[in-house]
Simulated scan of single mutants.
Amino acid sequence: MSVADDKWYFNPGTGDVAQGKTGSWDTRMGPYDTREEAARALEIAQARTAAADAAEASEDDWGEPASWEK
C-alpha cells in the first residue's frame, strides 16, 4: 500500500468519502489526512478560496494613483 492509498478523498458529485484514489482525478478532491477532513472538503475549499480572494484583493491596492491619472 502506497502513501497515496492511505489518504482520504471526497467525491463532490456523490458526497462519498473514500480511502485511496478511487475514480478519476476529476471526480475527487484531496488528498486529506483523515476521513473527517475529507468530509469537510467543500468547506475547506471555500475557506481557501476566500483567503486567496482576500490576498488577491490586497495586492490590487497599489495606493495613490499615478499623478497623470488624477
Rank of each mutant, 00 (worst) to 15 (best):
A39E: 07
D26A: 04
R28I: 01
E37F: 09
A18R: 12
P12S: 02
P31W: 07
V17I: 06
G13T: 03
T49F: 13
T49E: 15
D16P: 02
M1T: 09
M1Q: 07
V17Q: 00
D5G: 09
P12R: 01
E43H: 10
R35W: 07
M1F: 09
A41F: 01
G15P: 03
A18H: 11
R28F: 00
D60L: 15
T27Y: 01
T49W: 14
E69K: 15
V17H: 03
E56N: 14
E37G: 12
T14M: 07
D60V: 12
E56H: 15
M1N: 07
E37I: 08
M29E: 04
A54D: 10
F10H: 07
D33P: 02
G13Q: 08
E59T: 09
E69Y: 13
E59M: 12
N11M: 03
V3Y: 10
K70Y: 14
F10R: 01
R35Y: 07
Q19C: 03
G15H: 01
T34K: 03
S67K: 15
L42R: 14
N11H: 01
A51K: 15
A50R: 15
S67L: 14
V3I: 12
M1H: 06
G23D: 04
A18I: 11
A4M: 06
E37P: 07
F10L: 05
Y9F: 09
P12K: 00
W25R: 15
A39M: 00
D60C: 15
P65N: 11
G15V: 01
G63D: 09
Q19H: 06
E64L: 15
E56P: 02
E56A: 14
A57T: 05
E56T: 14
D16L: 14
E43V: 11
E43L: 08
S67N: 13
I44D: 05
N11Y: 06
G63Y: 12
A18T: 15
G13C: 04
A38G: 05
A41N: 01
G63L: 11
E69C: 13
W8A: 00
A4C: 08
E64T: 14
A50L: 14
P12A: 06
N11R: 01
T22K: 11
G15Y: 01
T49D: 12
G30C: 10
S24I: 09
D16E: 13
R40A: 13
M29V: 04
W25Q: 11
D53M: 12
D61N: 12
I44P: 02
A41V: 03
A4R: 03
E64G: 09
T49S: 13
A39D: 08
M29S: 00
W8P: 00
R35I: 01
A55F: 13
S2M: 09
S2Q: 03
W68C: 12
R40C: 05
